[in-house]
Amino acid sequence: MDILTTRTLRYTDEGGGEEEKEVVLTIFQPFEQDPWDWVCVFDFEPPIKPRNVRARGFDLIRAFLHCLTYARLTFETTSWSKTGHWQGSRDCGLPAKAEGPLPLQPPEIPPPESNPGSLEVFATRKLARPDETGAAAELLLTVYEPYPTESGTWKCPFAFGPAETTPIRHGMGADFIEAALDGLALARAIYASMLPEGWAPPESGDLLDCDDLPIKIGRSFSMGRPTP
């Protein structure tokens, strides 16, 4: 399997020593096993059992988010998690399912930028959006591969439209994972702002929504639903 990205977590042993040790989380490139069945695998080094855990989803985005969520749950089963962190964040910068509804805190939406037309596509999703009659019409969400900037931060561009022509916005972060989560959280907020109050996509059909994308609270990410 090809490696998509890695993240180094740090911890100190219980009961002795201040020297931090490292645990490397590896996320492998998601792949489509069957129609509407994507797989994303993660592993830890030093090993945490079970090894090479498979997370699934109906598309690449869903499988990737499930993978990050399961990776956090797996790390939290170890004694390392008692002192573990990523850049000081005890949640290791990984999303978790909320135990209850979350307050809606819409992020500030930056203005769009011109699309250079040379970005590499990471994932797409066909969303439902109402047309003039209120019927569901297709809206394409394109998420591009996160990339590092000269300053050391990462950007995750995304657009609502065709890959090479639609203006883009960016998620930002300290690595691939944080930039991707930030971009997906921003995409969720923008999509919600496009929908009339009370409108929802039809339950049947191939068009989806963004309700499974993360919500950002501070520097943390939750997979819960906001409080109306």
Rank of each mutant, 00 (worst) to 15 (best):
G173I: 02
E120W: 02
E164G: 04
E145N: 08
E76K: 11
D59F: 02
V39W: 03
C92W: 15
K21N: 07
T149I: 08
L65R: 06
P202H: 04
P106S: 06
L102A: 01
A189H: 06
I3G: 01
E22C: 04
T12M: 15
E203Q: 09
I217N: 00
C40P: 03
G57V: 00
S118D: 15
P146M: 08
L60A: 08
A159P: 01
G84T: 14
G17W: 11
Q29R: 13
Q33R: 14
L208K: 11
P201A: 03
T78K: 05
M1L: 09
G17R: 09
T69Q: 05
A179N: 05
P112F: 07
G152M: 02
G57K: 01
E132T: 09
L127D: 15
G198R: 01
P214Y: 01
I217S: 00
R129C: 15
V41P: 04
P228K: 09
V41G: 13
C67L: 03
E19K: 14
P107Q: 12
A174Q: 06
A174E: 03
V41F: 07
E20D: 09
F75M: 07
A71C: 01
E164L: 03
S118V: 13
W86N: 01
R169D: 11
G161C: 06
D212G: 00
G117W: 12
C67S: 10
E132R: 15
E120F: 05
L207S: 12
E20W: 14
I168V: 12
V121S: 08
E132H: 10
N115D: 09
E178F: 03
S81Y: 07
G100I: 04
E138D: 14
C40A: 14
E22D: 06
G198W: 03
E138L: 07
L104P: 04
T12Y: 12
P167K: 03
D209P: 06
E18L: 15
F75R: 01
P110F: 04
L60W: 00
L4Q: 11
G84W: 11
I215G: 06
T12W: 12
R72I: 05
R56A: 03
E150S: 08
Q29P: 05
H66P: 00
L104E: 15
P35C: 12
P162I: 10
F122P: 02
I109N: 15
W199C: 05
D2L: 15
L9D: 07
Y191W: 11
L73V: 06
P157D: 04
P30T: 15
S89M: 05
F28V: 04
G218N: 04
E145K: 14
K155W: 07
D91M: 02
T12A: 15
I215A: 10
L208H: 11
Y144V: 08
R125F: 02
E108W: 13
A55H: 00
A96F: 01
L181S: 11
H85F: 01
V41Q: 12
K21T: 06
R169P: 07
A180M: 14
Q33M: 10
H66C: 05
P146S: 08
P47I: 09
P95N: 05
K155D: 09
N52E: 02
D13I: 09
A163C: 09
N52P: 00
Q105W: 08
P112H: 08
R51K: 10
A136M: 12
E164I: 03
N115M: 11
I61R: 04
G93V: 02
I217Y: 01
G205R: 07
L102W: 01
A174L: 11
